[in-house]
Each structure stands twice: as C-alpha cells, then as structure tokens.
C-alpha cells in the first residue's frame, strides 16, 4: 500500500436534514487511481455522502481535502471550482435534452476549460468513438436508449478531465440488457486509472472492480475493506444481514 496522501479525504463529515442525521462522523479516504464502491441499504446516506464530495449537498461539519487542498465547505465559490475537477454521473443520466450529444459534451469544456469550439468538438468525438457512439454526435438525447445516454453522460463528465468521477447508482434506471454496456465503460475507466467513487447495487461489479468496498448504514460507515475480504468475511452484523438479503434476492431473481 502506498503512503501517498489520498486524492480525496473526508474527516468527520456530518449532515442533518432537519432533526434527521443523514451522515455522522464520516471519515473516508480515496486514493488516486482507486475505485471505491459504496453499498448499503436504502436511506443509509450513500447519495448524501457522495454529494458531499462535490457540494451538491453541503456538509454541516467536518473537513474535505481534495488533492492536498482543504475545501472551505461554506464557500460556494470553492465548490464551483471543485466541481469542474470532480465529475458526477447520475441515475437518470441528466443529459440536456434540448442540446445535441456533441453540444452536451462541449458545453462546459468550452466554458470552464476555455477550449476553442473546434478543439472541444474534436475531443468530444474522440470520447464518443471510444464508447462506440461516434455516429450519434448530432442526435438529440431522446433518440438514444437509456444505456447509450448513460454512457454519454459518463464521457460528458470525462470531457472536463476531472481528477475523479462520482457515480450515484449509474445503472439503476436502466433496462437489464443495457446495463453491461455501461459497466463495461466504467471498467474501462477503472483500468485507465480513473479515480472513482461508485454507489451501486451491482455486487458483481463491486467484487471485480472495486479496490475498496465501503458499507454504510444509518448515516455511518459500518465497515470497509478490499472486496474479497468484505464479501467473504463481513465482520459486522449489519453487513452480514445486508449481504444475505441481497443474496436471497439475487437467488429469487434467478429462480
């Protein structure tokens, strides 16, 4: 294990919604080039946690350090700067429906990376080619399947050349037959050393791609470790209950 300081480091992050504590005392380090997968029951705070990493949710307390620099969690300007460096992919893809695929991908690189249009388009086309959708550049999102849209949402995030990408259940809204295409793209990114934090219910993906699995319940991190260890020997009662639930659900699905 390298001793280099982590790319993203959360310390003592807490977040309340009214009287409900959605996150409490979260400490999480994400090493550069690693893939961290967050799992846990519904309402355990997974989405809230990854949203705290790019300020879509403002933590109430704790500290966040990205690439060695502390982020002032109360300064919107700091978050805006940070967001150009941390990409995010959502469950519902969230492509801009009134813009072509190419415009979706060049909009922010032109504005935030100050790329000339031709360069931004060139980069976008290369990224599209990489996911086999170069021929869709001039289509609108409505003409594409969910899986195609999600793959484009991923390369749209990539077009900002972020140092990390956050994924919040990227395959949960997809038809089963299009899920593997999206997971393939994510696998590809992981192989290239992209730093990723992924909330997912795809345990196969977690097992295979994650460097570390983080299990959450009730707004806390209950346990974390390498996937081989976590899946074979969950130490905590909550983790065991969660995994056995998923397994019986999976078996029921295959029955």
């Amino acid at each position: 294990m390298s001793q280099a300081s982590p790319l993203i480091s959360l310390k003592g992050i807490g977040k309340r919604f009214g009287s409900h504590a959605a996150l409490q005392g979260i400490d999480l380090d994400v090493a550069a080039g690693s893939v961290v997968v967050l799992i846990g029951p519904s309402g355990s705070g997974k989405s809230t946690l990854i949203r705290c990493i790019n300020g879509l949710v403002r933590p109430d307390e704790g500290s966040l350090t990205v690439a060695g620099r502390a982020v002032d969690i109360h300064d919107e300007g700091a978050w805006q700067g940070l967001r150009t460096q941390i990409g995010m992919v959502f469950q519902d893809y969230a492509l801009f429906p009134h813009l072509t695929i190419l415009r979706n991908m060049t909009l922010t690189p032109q504005r935030r990376r100050k790329l000339p249009r031709a360069v931004a388009e060139d980069e976008a086309r290369k990224l599209l080619a990489r996911i086999g959708l170069a021929h869709k550049a001039d289509d609108y999102p409505s003409a594409l399947s969910g899986g195609q849209q999600q793959r484009i949402a991923i390369v749209r995030a990539l077009a900002m050349q972020p140092m990390a990408i956050l994924f919040d259940e990227p395959t949960s809204a997809l038809d089963p037959e299009t899920i593997s295409g999206v997971l393939d793209v994510m696998r590809d990114l992981a192989r290239d050393g992209t730093t990723m934090v992924v909330v997912t219910h795809e345990m196969g993906f977690a097992r295979e791609v994650a460097d570390r699995v983080v299990f959450m319940a009730d707004g806390r991190i209950v346990e974390q470790g390498p996937p081989a260890e976590f899946f074979a020997n969950p130490r905590h009662e909550r983790s065991r209950a969660f995994l056995s639930n998923i397994r019986s659900f999976g078996e029921a699905n295959h029955a």
């Binding site: 879509l56 967001r83 995010m88 969230a94 009134h98 504005r111 935030r112």
Partner: peptide
C-alpha cells in the same frame, strides 16, 4: 428537472449559465 440543475452544477456551470443555457431555453 432538479436533476438537470444538479448535472449542470456538477459540470461546473454557474447558476447564471445554467439559467441561460439550459433552464431558460
């Protein structure tokens, strides 16, 4: 949708640009 706003912010668009480029059209 709220989702588009979050996507725009996640890409680093400012609220004003989100309004002008996405929400208003």
């Amino acid at each position: 949708a709220k989702g588009l706003r979050e996507a725009a912010f996640s890409l680093g668009l400012t609220p004003w640009r989100f309004f002008r480029l996405i929400a208003a059209p």
